[in-house]
């Protein structure tokens, strides 16, 4: 991990046309950008396109980057927009497929069983990762994007709302439904694995 000062020096070299310097920036942030692209698009092919197009656009527009945010934040926003365009091109589930609110009344009608601390050693790690990914893919896009930005990448409600062009209260509702859906999916899997009774 380099500090901001070192990053500025690398950026300066990249702005002067030093491709090795730009490649260094890709190596520094590539995994995080690819991870975002993969989760948002839900498939490797689209994620590869988004990942490559993001950095190629950043390279082309590098002289427009004024340093008001960190380089990562700037690239991250390019990647989000690219991923959203990709999803809209597919038009798959983008505007429909609603999820219901959690049934809070039922939550209080029967005693809830708590989960143990889930150690990844308890389950086949790779199979567990695939299960988590599959559950995320099952979430309709309008919920998935909110969950990824808010919970997996730590953006604020306001920032998520602005990026997705929805209201903050809509962001909160989608997030709540997404979390509840994923919790239920995970609970089913943990029961299948015999970790929960």
């Amino acid at each position: 991990m380099v500090n901001r000062l070192e990053e500025d020096k690398i950026l300066q070299r990249a702005r002067q046309g030093d491709r090795d310097a730009f490649a260094e920036l890709v190596k520094m942030y590539g995994d995080r950008i690819y991870g975002l692209a993969l989760r948002m698009t839900g498939n490797e092919k689209d994620a590869e396109d988004v990942y490559q197009d993001t950095f190629l656009m950043a390279l082309r527009k590098l002289d427009q980057f004024k340093g008001e945010s960190s380089f990562f934040t700037w690239v991250y926003h390019i990647a989000i927009n690219m991923a959203i365009s990709k999803i809209k091109q597919r038009k798959k589930n983008f505007s429909e497929n609603g999820l219901e609110d959690p049934d809070f009344d039922r939550l209080h009608q029967e005693p809830q069983k708590s989960w143990p601390d889930i150690e990844l050693t308890q389950v086949d790690r790779e199979r567990f990762r695939k299960k988590l990914s599959k559950a995320l893919e099952k979430l309709p896009e309008i919920y998935r994007t909110v969950f990824i930005l808010r919970d997996m990448h730590g953006l604020s409600t306001e920032e998520t709302a602005r990026i997705l062009e929805i209201t903050p209260s809509n962001t909160k509702i989608r997030l709540m439904r997404a979390r509840n859906f994923l919790k239920n999916e995970l609970e089913s899997f943990l029961k299948e694995e015999g970790i929960l009774l």
Binding site: G30, G35, Q52, D117, L132, I148, K183
Partner: peptide, 29 residues
């Protein structure tokens, strides 16, 4: 819910760019 979110955060941190994809990108750069 907290445990669900924590597991997904971990999942997002584990992702690596496939080497082939990086080779293609660097070639384009």
């Amino acid at each position: 819910l907290k445990k669900t979110v924590a597991l997904y955060r971990k999942l997002s941190m584990d992702t690596k760019v496939p080497d082939r994809v990086n080779r293609e990108l660097f070639a384009k750069i």
